[in-house]
Structure formats: C-alpha cells, structure tokens
Write a protein that binds this DNA or RNA. Structure first.
Lengths: 146, 146
DNA sequence: AGCATTTAGTGGATTTTGTCAACTAAATTG
DNA sequence: CAATTTAGTTGACAAAATCCACTAAATGCT
C-alpha cells in the first residue's frame, strides 16, 4: 500500500475515532449558557488579547453578521466590550470585561476537567507517549501551509 | 509540571490546531447537497452495512426525531431504504440504495482528496511517522472506556 | 483632488438545524 | 396479562446559521 493511501486511511480512521471519543470538542455539553460559537469566540479573544470582529471572522470562518449579533448579545450580557478604534473608524476592538475573563477562565477550566476525565486512567508512560504523539502530529501537519 | 497538567495542555493545544488545520472535519464544504449530519449518517450506514435508526442514534448521539426526518428525506431522494424487520416489527433496517452507495463512495472520495491535499507535500518518512503517531493516539485513548 | 472599489460592521428576512414532548405500535419484564 | 420499555413518527418550537442589502469609513486609481 502506498504511503499516501495508508496515511489517508489512517487519518480517516483517526478522525472518526477522535470525533466520537473526544466528541465534546465542539459540543455545548460544556456549559449550557454559552453556545459552541460563543465559546469558540470567547477562547479566541482570550488568546488574541484584543482583536476586531473581522479578525475573528477570518480565523473562525463564521459569517460576519452572525458574529456581529453574537458580539452584541455578549456585550449586553456584560461579557465583552466594543471599543471604537481611533486609527480605523470602521473597526471596533473587542475586549473581555472582567466578568468575561472570569467566565472564559471558567469555561477553560471546564474543558480541562473534561479532558482530564478522558485521560484519568492513563499511566505516566501512556501520558508521555500520548503527548509525544500529539506534538508529532502538530509538527508534521503544521508543515503543510494552507 | 505534572503529567496530567502537561497532557491536558497538550490535548487542548492539539484540539485547537486540529480543528483549525483540519477544519473540514465537520464541514459541509464537502458537498453542499448533503448536510454534515446527513454525511455522518451515510458514512455510518456504509460502515455498518445495515443498521437500525436506534443504532445510529446510539453511535452518533443525535436525536431520534431528527434522525427520523433525515432518513425520510434521504429515502424520498432515493439514497436509502427502510426495510421492516421481521423479527422486531418496531424496527426498520436502513440500507443504502445503489445510488446511495455511489453517492457515499463519492463523498468518501471527496474527503480522501481533501485529506490528500493536506498531506500532499509530506516525505515518506513524515507519512510513516504521522501514521504511527495517529495510531498511538487511537491506541492509548481507546483504552479509556466511556 | 475626485470617483470607484474595497472593507468593517449592522440589520432584516429567511433557512437550516436541532430539541422537546406527546403519541402509536410492538416488545419485554415480571 | 398488566406495566414498563423501546423504536420510530409527528407537531411545535427554539437556536443556529446564511444571504442580502445597506451605511460609513478607508483605500486605490488616474
């Protein structure tokens, strides 16, 4: 079997396994008070400190009007703030409020616990091996630029 | 850093990387004529040859009423068939029609090409290493029963 | 400069997706 | 054989996501 056929089959098998086994990846089992999209947006802002809506649109590939409404909702809920940019008056910087930061941290903690539950029974050796394997994949697939 | 903290951080990093980099996983960029749910259902029936709706409900964790309607739709589109079971008259076996099989194969071929594009530039060595890493993850995480 | 095009974000209207509860019919429990 | 469970269907809704048209600001072009 050629390398390509083998790797494609393996990735296919992995995807199937991972989405079932780690199915919470894109689930709202996390916390019913935030949708999947909201959660991803919160995580993204957390990572990027401060960013514009179009930044998020580009990264997460979601519709700009959809995002706009989500941001509005989260603003009225006191989770984030829109700050008019001085240099480019079309754009608004989005930042988390104190409450938003706390909430995001809480959500991260929740996912950590879910992940923790998944690996709870693993031995030290398995943990290390798993880490290596995950990093290997990031390294190799990261070479492919898109 | 403890093994657990390390592995949780790594999985978190991996999830982020993989959903962005391999984002097509659960996308309908695949083929606009089938929704994500429809595609998953088609793949599942393909794998299990013949199965009941409740089988699929259990495997894919989707609402039975939701599934029922999707199956109906795909039946009227000539993709699949419901066959009354003799032994248990509550259940209906679902099978793909010839057209359904062709369509499913076509969808699989499409994902294969998407995956292929992702790994196109990899060396033989990288391919093998990647395969090993993916299989390692399946092996280790597969130990954890849920 | 001045006009055309692009970009950021908003809002209306709609479709798609997914959920919940109630129901029928058949199977299972005990 | 009555009570409970299971498989699937349907109605009514709610949530999520998309499409399109629009305003205002920035950028490109000649």
């Amino acid at each position: 079997m050629s390398e390509y056929k083998k790797i494609i089959d393996t990735i296919r098998k992995f995807n199937r396994f991972y989405t079932v086994n780690m199915g919470f990846l894109n689930s709202n089992y996390l916390d019913s008070s935030y949708s999947v999209a909201e959660t991803r947006i919160l995580f993204e802002i957390k990572m990027n400190e401060s960013c514009t809506q179009s930044d998020i649109v580009k990264i997460l590939h979601i519709d700009k009007s959809y995002l706009s409404r989500i941001v509005q909702r989260l603003c009225t809920r006191g989770i984030m703030q829109k700050i008019k940019s001085e240099d480019d008056k079309r754009t608004t910087k989005i930042t988390l409020t104190e409450m938003g930061k706390k909430e995001t941290d809480r959500l991260i903690e929740l996912t950590n616990m879910q992940i923790g539950a998944k690996v709870a029974g693993l031995s030290k050796e398995d943990c290390n091996e798993l880490c290596d394997a995950l990093n290997t994949i990031i390294l190799i697939l990261g070479k492919e630029v898109n």
